[in-house]
Design a protein around this nucleic acid. Structure first.
Lengths: 248, 248
DNA sequence: ATTCGACACGAACGGCGTTTGTCAGGAGAC
DNA sequence: GTCTCCTGACAAACGCCGTTCGTGTCGAAT
């Protein structure tokens, strides 16, 4: 596998063409693949199926992507293009941050295929960067120092991805709660007393309710937990230099 | 696929046996599969490979597991058997909780195969329940009400799983930081100024450092964010009843 | 002794990702 | 204009996968 940056578009000029079939392009491949992923899940996005949808053979795709993994990465970033970055200047950062994460989760939870892909793919494309940049801006606006914000952005996106996967998994099963509820329902009280007592709460809070609580938790925690300096203490001088850097 | 509880051991008496081959058993299958997963990743745990390691054919495994998915679920829970639940009564809950999560992350991050499996599998087996029960106990000891603890346990385990996956992914690549660093290193400053400024911090803090900070964040947040009751307020009466239930 | 149920497992089916090799078309050089 | 080279297009093939089907064997029950 090459070390070429997969997000730089190769200038490939399609040699195929004619009155009947459209020329292939990476854009078309990613578009079709995302559609298949959304409708049929990760297994529905095989190279064969993508190629068939484009009326060609799977080997043709290798002129545009190195392998399936690269296609998956491109598809994931393409999906993130739909995430809305809130930009109203009069709106408080907290609300905008919650909206950003909510949009992210909504996009990912749209289909279990996408959520599953997100759980296994490093988000490093232009759209992912757009989102991280927005997170960092919002955290800065919240008064979080740059160093802490870096880790907080990671924490928030990790959690958002995990929540999206959880929601999409529940959405996928006709029985929305599925095997987990069956397991919790059959838990023996002497063996697992607290689980037994909490079994309804463990699966409660679908959609926004649990998300809202969790964002509260994460933001409260982040705002009160600046990253420690190397000697383990948070010094007022460090805070001061943070403020100066901001106006540079 | 049946609705049988996969964690209840089927009483299967092996009909195969003899001086040369050991009788198959579910335990042996799961053990071999976990070993293969650890050494060769998720793709290394195919039914064919597991069967070959047991000197049989893949079809033989269907007497013991319904399908590959069930085997994966069993393997995941088996791996969680190694998670250490801290039980020293004189040790404070915070320290024990951090140790529990650290043990969980260590086990999962042991191999990228296991971490990947954890990202795609609902933890609902006996060992997973053991961990959730311990989390709930510790949160109770921290003074967190039952309702909030239910969600907090979920939040903590989601995050721990995601961190483990992140760590295992980095561990797997010889270049421990890999494509993400390359991407961050080539980010353009005018387009993504905050990412550019934070690019080193975004990937800093391997191992315990970032984990310790994140646990601080999550615990601070949880302790200050009880779940709202249905009418949106937290009432002292509700806290009272929580305390009474505790001594019941 | 006979029958039944279930483990054991090879063969086969349909599917996958990827590589190899051939063809055809376009660009560039002469 | 002709020739050569490069590259997109893509069929065929390879090796691998999960699962089903069918057959054989053995032990328990009658």
């Amino acid at each position: 596998m090459s070390t070429r940056n997969p997000f730089e578009a190769r200038d490939v000029t399609s040699r195929r063409g004619g009155p009947v079939k459209k020329p292939l392009s990476r854009d078309a491949i990613v578009t079709v693949a995302l559609d298949l992923l959304t409708r049929e899940g990760l297994e529905g996005m095989s190279l064969r199926k993508v190629a068939a949808a484009l009326e060609t053979g799977p080997a043709s795709l290798y002129a545009y992507v190195d392998d399936l993994r690269e296609l998956q990465t491109l598809v994931f970033d393409r999906a993130l293009a739909d995430v809305t970055i809130p930009r109203e200047p009069l709106r408080d950062w907290r609300s905008r941050l919650a909206s950003l994460l909510e949009s992210y989760i909504t996009i990912l939870a749209r289909s279990s295929g996408l959520a599953q892909l997100a759980m296994n793919t490093i988000a490093a494309g232009p759209n992912a960067l757009r989102i991280i940049e927005a997170l960092l801006c919002l955290l800065d606006e919240a008064g979080v120092d740059q160093s802490t914000a870096a880790w907080a952005a990671d924490l928030l996106s990790l959690y958002a991805t995990a929540i999206a996967a959880e929601q999409s998994h529940r959405k996928e099963n006709g029985d929305p709660l599925g095997p987990l509820v069956r397991m919790l329902g059959s838990v023996s009280q002497p063996e697992f007393p607290r689980i037994h007592a909490s079994r309804e709460q463990l699966v409660s809070g679908q959609g926004l309710e649990r998300f809202d609580w969790a964002i509260e938790v994460l933001l409260k925690g982040v705002l009160q937990t600046p990253r420690q300096s190397h000697d383990g203490s948070v010094s007022p001088v460090e805070k001061g230099s943070h403020r100066r850097a901001r106006h540079a």
